[in-house]
Amino acid sequence: MEKETIISARNLIKKFGHFTANDNLTFEVKKGEIFGFLGANGAGKTTAIRILCGLSSPTSGEVKVAGFDIYHETEKIKKNIGYMSQKFSLYEDLTISENIKLYAGIYGIGRKQRKVKEAELLQKLELEKVKNKLIGDLPLGWKQKLAFSVAIFHDPKIVFLDEPTGGVDPVTRRKFWDLIYEAAHNGITVFVTTHYMDEAEYCDRVSIMNAGKIEALDTPAKLKEKYKATNMDEVFLKIAR
């Protein structure tokens, strides 16, 4: 059975002055998918993800996220998505608990439900002992996992991850991907940008961007077949040249 489409972009264009950051992007993301958005630095991944999250408006094109129009229904979209930027953006001068409380409050999660979910989250991430510590004092790997957990705390339909594992060691990255799988298993659609090609293998489908354009879009297996490559790294190098 064909799964329902949760993100659709048609001829999405974003220009900054004369520079075209996103050139005619057309793609669809299905519900429950882990969708990888690959590309070199400056290929336009972050621009696209910011548009999908409503942080930036496109120059032209038709975009729908969670069934809502990107131009007129951004606030409705925002209720249904979670976002984790490449820059760590929880409040470093608040404790773990306080950060959770803040975002639970913004999304209108009640006190009781918050306590239950917070306990669950802290147990899963093994952060119970440091829940009253300032976030600024935590190591980067913990921060990233926490940022991800906070981004999906309100059970969004889609979570957007912009290079979530930048600067993190391979072991922590592997653990981070366990969290992503778990979220996907719970029905959350995951839209993730990365430039680590090993991570691309973990995705259901990937699109590869180069200079603002989508050059390829398929499952990792089919892409490897098409480009006669043994791994995603080779595929990427063939496309990006």
């Binding site: 606030e75 925002k78 930027s85 409040y91 913004i106 999304y107």
Partner: peptide, 14 residues
């Protein structure tokens, strides 16, 4: 400057 405002801007906060 530190980027925390982005995280708020993707929420439905009025």
């Amino acid at each position: 400057e530190i980027g925390t405002i982005e995280q708020l801007n993707v929420t439905p906060l009025k």
